[in-house]
Write a protein that binds this DNA or RNA. Structure first.
Lengths: 133, 133
DNA sequence: CTATCAACCTACTATGTCAATAGGTAAATA
DNA sequence: TATTTACCTATTGACATAGTAGGTTGATAG
């Protein structure tokens, strides 16, 4: 399952994109509009800042801002940053030592094909696709 | 992620289907061939018997047997029996009270479409598809 | 220079799931 | 009656999820 982190991250991006008027948007406002605990969102956006999905500024007038155009936020990328690999089975996680059973495994193609389906889906969806509703 | 329960279940079905000569197949043999702990497989096949995916018989000469033809084992069904709903987000799990945000939720269509993709994939795959390799 | 606002940081916690293991009981057959 | 096999109950360690709590740093308005 896609976790709250991944889903909240997308909602935060959407919220900021929709209320973007150049200024930084305080988390308080986002939390209120999205009806999500501000405390928990702090963790989410912290990860997003670290991953260069958001830009944050402290102090009065501070808040968060997108650091890309909406059409440059690939949703697959966002989800994998927040939730980890989209792979349906651990043996398909990238940079992993290959499963010793791989050659004889009769179920592997089933997962490979599904993995491809999933990637194709989320890596061809962008934040802008969600906005133009 | 698809858990070991779901994956092992499919491997057990495949193993039995391939070694089917009318007789019941003891779990010991399956565990040895598949290189999976017999103790853990006991739990897996127990669930499978409960769900009418397998038929088991105790005592000498006992073991497990398929109770359908391979082309009647839908893999989506098997996975959902073993691992629970395939839904990518909890608000898409069947027989659940609908999310109050559903109407205004701008991300819901993203999950709905992916959910459909996933179901279409696994509910159109059958055990027989894995055998005729 | 100080109050305030907001991000940022560290730590903790309850709950649940996953992947097993352990040991014993019941059923069928040689 | 001994053996083989399924079946049953209980427990465990490790980890992830979804938060909460409280304090610190940085920027700005007055």
């Amino acid at each position: 399952m896609i976790t709250t982190k991944g889903r909240y991250a997308i909602r935060v991006l959407l919220d900021i994109a929709k209320h973007d008027e150049g200024a930084y948007i305080p988390l308080k406002d986002i939390a209120a509009r999205q009806n999500i605990s501000k405390k928990y969102l702090e963790i989410v956006v912290k990860d997003m800042v670290t991953a260069n999905l958001l830009q944050g500024i402290s102090g009065r007038g501070g808040g968060y801002k997108l650091c890309r155009k909406p059409e440059d936020y690939c949703l697959g990328e966002v989800i994998e940053i927040m939730d980890g690999p989209l792979a349906p089975v651990s043996c398909l996680v990238a940079n992993q030592e290959p499963c010793p059973r791989a050659d004889e495994c009769e179920t592997l193609p089933l997962w490979v094909e599904y993995d491809k389906l999933t990637h194709d889906y989320f890596y061809n969806k962008y934040l802008s696709d969600l906005i133009k509703k």
